[in-house]
Design a protein around this nucleic acid. Structure first.
Lengths: 147, 147
DNA sequence: AACCCTACTGAGAACGATTATCACCTTCAC
DNA sequence: GTGAAGGTGATAATCGTTCTCAGTAGGGTT
């Protein structure tokens, strides 16, 4: 099977930020993050944290997001209306993401680039150093609702 | 073979913009476009057109790019430093792009998502409605230069 | 060839996401 | 407990892109 529920282990706030310090604000950000289902923008996260910690600055949220992405706790999974979309992602084996456009849920999908595509590119003289893959669609629940 | 030189037929300015009008500015934009090798940003194109038509406004270039993208003459092939990357792309059969990070050349690659990946997602209850794939790497020439 | 409607143009303002700056406050290793 | 490194919030700045507006010019129609 190629798709898999996206890993969402319990949030270990201490590890979320890698080697960064764990401030009170970042604890609240971690908690708000847990309440967000799938893909989210920095603004979404800022709004969620604001409920727990009114007055938190946007810059703080952006910095926390950057720290989490740096620590591989968060993956950049696309863009929506000019805003960057992130999702929790433990890292681990190389994979990509399918984002449900109905509810924002994110699931992992196997990488379709590694293997034949990279090999044939190499045979043609090309070196593939990086790639981006994002799928958009509907999760089973949203698929049913929309026929 | 999975990779193919990206189609770059002679520029037919009249068709580049679909049903839009062909103004003198747009003719110059078409000519500047032909001089750009592979992937480019709106700013790159604006700089190139400015050589032919000093004083052309950025908005004009952005509008022309939007018209060409709308007419399927241009494809959005990724992003670089927060700017959108475009490349000439005649459309036609569904494919994706490999961008040489050395020289900006763009080549077509077959879609690795259609087929097994979509099928297994469907079997898992997911409906895949859209996807984005971009490869980055080095063309044969740049591969040799960099060992 | 003159006419007219409409799309295109350039300048500059506006916009929105993100990042930088700065003075102050916390964390945490020692 | 102390101090240096790092985090915080407010605010300004940045920067790609889009909008607004008044003027211009395609190009189909007479």
């Amino acid at each position: 099977m190629t798709t898999a529920a996206h890993p969402t282990e319990p949030l270990d706030a201490a590890r979320l930020y890698g080697r960064g310090r764990l401030s009170a604000a970042r604890r609240d950000i971690a908690q708000a993050l847990a309440s967000l289902g799938g893909a989210f923008t920095a603004e979404d996260l800022h709004a969620a944290v604001s409920a727990l910690r009114p007055g938190i600055g946007v810059a703080t949220v952006y910095r926390a997001v950057a720290a989490m992405a740096e620590a591989n706790s968060l993956a950049l999974v696309g863009a929506r209306d000019g805003s960057t979309l992130y999702a929790r992602c433990a890292g681990g084996k190389h994979h990509h993401h399918l984002i449900c456009t109905g509810c924002g849920t994110v699931v992992s999908v196997a990488c379709p680039v590694d293997g034949p595509l990279v090999r044939s590119a190499r045979e043609a003289g090309y070196t593939v150093t990086a790639h981006e893959v994002t799928l958009y669609g509907l999760c089973p629940t949203c698929s049913k609702e929309r026929g």
